[in-house]
């Protein structure tokens, strides 16, 4: 049904496939790892991220769960307490909230509460973001709820290469990791190197395009938007940084860039007000106040619930809105 051949260095595959490959490696490497969620087994996930894994590792290690997100995360916490390393799938961004209590009051606190006695190497995978013409609750960007919660590491991948290495790093991480996957990019293809040795650490930001006039900060789906904007801008040289890790934030990489360019725009799909970009803007201001020509500009979703799909192109930050913000860094 599915191929199980390990890709060699530099194999090209989709982001969904790269996650699949990473999860397969994690399951093969460590018998404590298991995958759990709605429709992750027989179906292989609605985005096919777990395709073929149940057939290979069995339905106890790739588990179709009852339909309840609090249950998925709550039982995963218990399994972790017993020494397993669960990778939970939340089917869509908008459906993480039944698990919100488990994630924020239980999972995030247990290490502190037990003074480090409880280990919670849990990964919660969440497809996020819009742009796929989907129904209500299928296009949201809830990352700020989690970046605001101490005790959680929060990351977002944007390329097949990162998807593969970051999911493996997340599974290996001793802390709980909320792992955001840009659903708009699941079928984007790119090279994947299965050798983890050369990969940057999970909590490092990466300069994905060098430039000298302004810095664009992005993660997940907006990395592509920013690269497109930088490409389209013929007059200015724009640096693009893929933050990758939202909590912790790689302030050093960001600050070094902004100190050089003197302009900064942070771009995400989530609403701007109270969004993750506000934290980034504040930190950049603290570190680069003297270098900045103007305040850090933020581009993102509006003060409104994610709209019906025929309006999403207005809601989502696009190339033009990014360049409009770049204009306002002078």
């Amino acid at each position: 049904m599915t191929t199980t051949t390990e890709p060699s260095t530099g194999t090209t595959m989709s982001l969904s496939r790269a996650l699949n490959t990473g999860l397969r490696a994690a399951l093969a490497d460590d018998p404590a790892v298991l995958v759990m969620g709605e429709d992750v087994g027989t179906l292989g996930g609605v985005f096919r991220v777990t395709d073929g894994l149940a057939a290979e590792f069995g339905s106890d290690r790739v588990m179709d769960t009852p339909l309840g997100e609090a249950g998925i995360v709550g039982t995963a916490v218990g399994m972790a307490l017993r020494g397993l390393r669960p990778v939970c799938e939340i089917q869509f961004d908008g459906f993480v909230f039944p698990a919100f209590n488990q994630i924020t009051t239980q999972l995030a606190h247990l290490s502190s509460r037990t003074r480090g006695a409880a280990h919670l190497p849990l990964v919660i995978r969440i497809p996020f973001g819009g742009g796929i013409g989907a129904a209500e609750h299928h296009g949201e960007s809830p990352e700020a709820y989690f970046t605001h919660t101490p005790g959680l590491r929060v990351v977002a991948c944007s390329t097949p290469a990162d998807a593969h290495t970051m999911i493996r790093q997340a599974v290996a991480c001793p802390d709980p990791v909320v792992f955001f996957e840009p659903k708009q990019l699941y079928w984007e293809r790119g090279p994947v190197d299965t050798d983890l040795g050369s990969a940057p650490a999970m909590d490092r930001a990466v300069v994905v395009r060098e430039g000298s006039d302004a810095t664009l900060l992005a993660y997940g789906p907006t990395v592509r938007t920013c690269l497109d904007a930088a490409e389209a801008d013929e007059e200015r040289s724009l640096e693009v940084i893929d933050l990758r890790s939202l909590n912790p934030l790689d302030t050093a990489t960001v600050a070094a860039s902004v100190a050089r360019t003197g302009g900064c725009v942070v771009v995400h799909e989530a609403p701007v007000f109270g969004g993750y970009g506000a934290e980034v803007a504040a930190r950049v201001t603290e570190h680069c106040f003297d270098a900045l020509r103007t305040p850090v500009r933020r581009v993102g979703g509006f003060c409104a619930p994610y709209p019906p799909s025929r309006l999403e192109h207005h809601y989502l930050p696009d190339l033009d809105r990014v360049l409009d913000a770049v204009d306002r860094t002078w």
């Binding site: 339909l67 908008g94 459906f95 909230f97 039944p98 013409g133 129904a135 209500e136 609750h137 299928h138 619930p305 019906p308 799909s309 025929r310 309006l311």
Partner: peptide
């Protein structure tokens, strides 16, 4: 709803029908 022009197309008071619940 299904064409993506509105989250819900009717007035729930008029038809005594709440919007479709997408969150199970």
């Amino acid at each position: 709803h299904f064409r993506g022009v509105a989250h819900s197309g009717w007035d729930p008071r008029e038809y005594r029908l709440h919007p479709y619940s997408v969150v199970v």
